[in-house]
Design a protein around this nucleic acid. Structure first.
Lengths: 163, 163
DNA sequence: TCTGAAAGTTTTCATCC
DNA sequence: GGATGAAAACTTTCAGA
């Protein structure tokens, strides 16, 4: 029995997938897609927000359309000695808007950082400040993105084909 | 001189940043934040959509709230011989909803793949199918995400502090 | 060409069954 | 879960700078 009270049913999974794909649809349009009235959809969406699984809505920009965007993925290993290395590192990177994504990972590296900048000059400035000329960073390597084949932050709410 | 005709001014940059941060605000609220009327904001937003830099709006789910989500970052190197290796690889990975992000990168690896699954069983099934028991993949390594410190897909429209 | 405001339309919200 | 009316938001139009 789930401690949150309610479980997500098939319609919930479909609604959450639709909302993650395009939140511009009206409640009525969503209702038609899942076979419910607009009122029923509204109630469910409100439940997602109240329970916290739906955090917010955001606009997605198209990198290829006119915007100069350089994406880079950095694998970072911190110093092992310093006790507050992780804390300092996270605080510093979270303060930079160019840090699009930041993951603490298992394995040889401690963090994977995705940097989104407006070009190589911008990238170097940010990378130097955050990683090269920075405390607590033992080493890092950079993979430049040649083609962002797919981007996004959609999460699965269930295993594919499961109900 | 920009070939698209129009350049983004300071207000455009601020609006795009606000929309990427939270698109749930009303046109009037956005207007107050940038010092314009709702009509003026609406016109600008419509322009972003028409020009294609604003692709769509999406819902962002909160991984920590009740949802079982396992994120993993895979670094993939393809076989060099096969001529259509990249093509086949991209097509196969793009067909999987668990492939949250897919980047063609420079360096030792050819691709960085972010897999979002509902747990280790799900992850293994997907990773085995897409990478292990798959053609054209020479080798790959997996970094499991211990903590998604920051996620998102916000892009900079200008260098910080620039106008 | 861009702005702000008003009118008209659609969507959302709250309460009903 | 569905339906209804009220409130709010969005869209369009218009006149001024």
């Amino acid at each position: 029995m789930p401690r949150d009270g309610k479980v997500l049913d098939d319609v919930d999974h479909r609604l959450l997938a639709l909302l993650q794909e395009d939140s511009g649809r009206t409640l009525g349009a969503l209702g038609e897609l899942v076979g419910l009235s607009a009122s029923a959809v509204q109630r469910r969406v409100e439940r997602y927000r109240a329970s916290g699984i739906l955090a917010r809505y955001v606009a997605v920009l198209e990198p290829r359309r006119g915007l100069d965007v350089l994406l880079a993925i950095c694998l970072v290993t911190l110093e092992r000695e310093s006790g507050h290395a992780h804390e300092e590192f996270r605080r510093r990177l979270l303060a930079a808007p160019e840090v699009q994504q930041l993951y603490n990972v298992s394995g040889d590296s401690d963090y994977v950082v995705v940097l989104a900048t407006t070009g190589m000059a911008h990238h170097r400035e940010v990378a130097d400040r955050l990683l090269k000329d920075a405390p607590n960073v033992r080493r890092y390597s950079t993979l430049f993105v040649l083609d962002p084949v797919r981007t996004g932050s959609a999460l699965p709410t269930r295993r594919e084909g499961e109900d």
